[in-house]
Write a protein that binds this DNA or RNA. Sequence first.
DNA 1: CCGGATCCGAATCGATACTG
DNA 2: CAGTATCGATTCGGATCCGG
Lengths: 232, 232
Amino acid sequence: MASRSYGQYCGVTTAVELIGERWALLIVRDLLVGPRRYTDLKQGLPKIPTNILSTRLKELQEGGVVRRVALANCGLVYELTPYGRGLESIVLALGRWGFPQMGEPAPEDVVTGDSLTMALRTAFRPEVAASVPPADYEVHVGDVALRVQVDGAELRIAQLAPPAPPVGGRLPTGQPELVFAAGPGIRRVISGELTPAEAIDREVLAVVAGDPSLLERFADTFHIEATVDVAA
Amino acid sequence: MASRSYGQYCGVTTAVELIGERWALLIVRDLLVGPRRYTDLKQGLPKIPTNILSTRLKELQEGGVVRRVALANCGLVYELTPYGRGLESIVLALGRWGFPQMGEPAPEDVVTGDSLTMALRTAFRPEVAASVPPADYEVHVGDVALRVQVDGAELRIAQLAPPAPPVGGRLPTGQPELVFAAGPGIRRVISGELTPAEAIDREVLAVVAGDPSLLERFADTFHIEATVDVAA
DNA sequence: CCGGATCCGAATCGATACTG
DNA sequence: CAGTATCGATTCGGATCCGG
């Protein structure tokens, strides 16, 4: 198996050997949201072949990144080890780095609960959040629904649909202050390319319930600069 | 080419599509040290097939990560765009993350000038460096030789050998205060597994010139924790 | 349904040779 | 120096199948 090796004694090389195979980092991304069953992962990564998923999970376990845990109530989940959780800041940084190059969504592109959760974590600005009142949103993108609670510099996200209450997840009680629905165009709100008002105007986004002015706060709290530096 | 797509509209996915192919991030790692010619890259990545190198360079250019520049004195180099330079902190973090899992070097593993340069940047602790006197080292690992200058929180590294003065690089003048030579075992000094004294004892490292006590300062300035958290 | 294993054609990668 | 061309070895993708 020396053919898989890059032949260098270097930390970056080792890291890439551990999580650089196709699909591996996307599995890690989803596991950063919480422990997941094999089937959850398959659904969250609709285009992954099942043999690749099982191969990657094996490799990630051998690398000490992921572990397989039998649940008390007879189930089986994969979760990140503490070492694997060390990738969190890296995956968030990669999401921020990739954001400006996302372009327009391909017709086939989907938005999953886990990917949207991580995207919001990526875009979250704690300094801004700490300086505005707490807020409680329900965000719909495609058929994904998230409950997003901002309380000071803290962010909590729960998946409402589709369908299953996440393993070990506790659903928030009470009513969100703002419910809104969008498509992939929500990215242009996050980037500041569209103001919330413009987004509503162009039907990129629609308020279902609550005070639309809360959208401004949302856009302030979740933001990623998308201008790509072309010059020198 | 939709077969290469992961089918998700997500920043992490986009990032992985840009720099997730085999060898791509190692090319970026080397370019983070400085602009490099095709041949430099090939030497710095001894095991990369040349067709893969040229394919990757094309893809990285299309992705806006790398650009190809004709030099004044008739040459051709690849360099990171400003957008590509945005990967610096990510690559450094990956190097730090991979460090604990490096294990023992395979017999075939090499250490290149660029990989060692990035490894030292990864291990550099500016807070520590700022609190000790400036230092000027010459580090040999295998047949790589680096001039490493620490001045307050600033770090400057130049490659002395092998062989070519790097493109646009200016060699430091004057004498280093300490010259030492090591093998891959230098990693165990960086991790703190061996003290400099122990490293000399076990012939992992040898002082060629200068005051051996400066090694302590080196080990303080360049350090990565290598203990992997196994518990919960 | 859950958690995979198996099979096979298509695409990529790796090694070497070759060229302007 | 800066790549193309070629070709066998691997890996990936898509579909199917199987035991609990």
